[in-house]
């Protein structure tokens, strides 16, 4: 059975809405500038294009933050996308800070197990967050996030690492929509065509690690979350029982990453529970 296609994307509307979103939500909280990490992948390449359109390239700082084992092509492509978007560009090698941190845990540096690789990947992601938030304070620039909806739903990101930001323009776009919009905005072809990867070790690709293609995951998430298909309806559409079970479980167990920390309720009004104000309060 042929699976349904991944969600479409009205690229014209997405461009105007996201550009206006970044401009308005940045300026109304008193900022003129933005800072974001550029990985050499499609998500951050798209955000830098949107940011340049929203604020002007001179007001956007893109930071490439390679670790010593990162694929050198990633840095080249990061530079290429910064050039294409005509934004400010800075390279911060995080090897020293990440290694210093890794060294605090005896044996971790040499450990090549999956769990150790994941821990090291998380340390790198959090080092990058520290760099971005420091640049944010230095330049009075708001941190833009680059997590897409597929990653957010599957929990495929580091909490307080790459998931940390003030504004995220692409958090409601699935990966397949990211590709469509990136093509529309002229993101360099080498980046659009590159297999998505967290670049935590050599040869790693997202799709291999997830066990599904992005098209399949996106079609599943779009029908299950946005179109509210039931489990039975999803099976009828042609998704296998394995896919439905494992993806549903993954969405569920990663809910914690999508929420602020849980606060023990004691008082009459508790932050985010029954003390509820918009972030844009008065701005």
């Amino acid at each position: 059975m042929t699976l349904p296609p991944p969600p479409a994307c009205n690229v014209e509307l997405a461009t105007s809405a996201l550009t206006a979103f970044l401009r308005e939500e940045t300026r109304k909280v008193g900022f003129q500038k933005a800072v974001l990490g550029l990985s050499g992948g499609i998500d951050s390449a798209l955000v830098v294009e949107l940011a340049a359109r929203a604020l002007g390239g001179e007001n956007v700082l893109a930071v490439a933050m390679p670790y010593r084992t990162s694929n050198p092509i990633s840095l080249e492509l990061a530079q290429e996308s910064a050039q294409h978007a005509a934004v400010q560009f800075e390279v911060v090698d995080i090897s020293a800070m990440a290694d210093a941190h890794i060294a605090t845990s005896p044996g971790l540096a040499e450990d090549d197990s999956d769990a150790a690789r994941l821990r090291k990947g998380n340390i790198m992601a959090r080092c990058r967050m520290i760099v971005l938030y420091d640049r944010s304070a230095r330049d009075h620039a708001l941190v833009y996030g680059t997590s897409n909806k597929t990653e957010l739903m599957l929990g495929y990101g580091t909490i307080f690492g790459d998931m940390a930001s003030a504004l995220n323009p692409i958090g409601d776009l699935y990966k397949s929509q990211i590709v469509a919009l990136s093509k529309h905005l002229g993101v360099p072809k080498a980046i659009v065509d590159r297999p998505p990867s967290a670049d935590l070790w050599q040869g790693q690709t997202d799709e291999e690690e997830l066990g599904f293609s992005y098209d399949e995951v996106d079609a599943f998430l779009h029908h299950s979350i946005d179109r509210r298909y039931t489990r039975e309806e999803l099976l009828q559409l042609g998704f296998t029982e394995t896919a439905v079970n494992s993806l549903s479980r993954r969405v569920q167990i990663n809910q914690y990453k999508r929420r602020p920390p849980v606060i023990a309720k004691l008082a009459n009004r508790t932050v985010n529970l029954d003390y509820r104000y918009a972030r844009d309060w008065g701005s």
């Binding site: 969600p7 479409a8 994307c9 009205n10 014209e12 509307l13 997405a14 809405a17 929509q177 779009h222």
Partner: peptide, 11 residues
């Protein structure tokens, strides 16, 4: 505004 996941010209 809701619904950008179509090929329609409008939300």
């Amino acid at each position: 505004a809701r619904g950008i996941d179509t090929d329609e010209p409008e939300l």
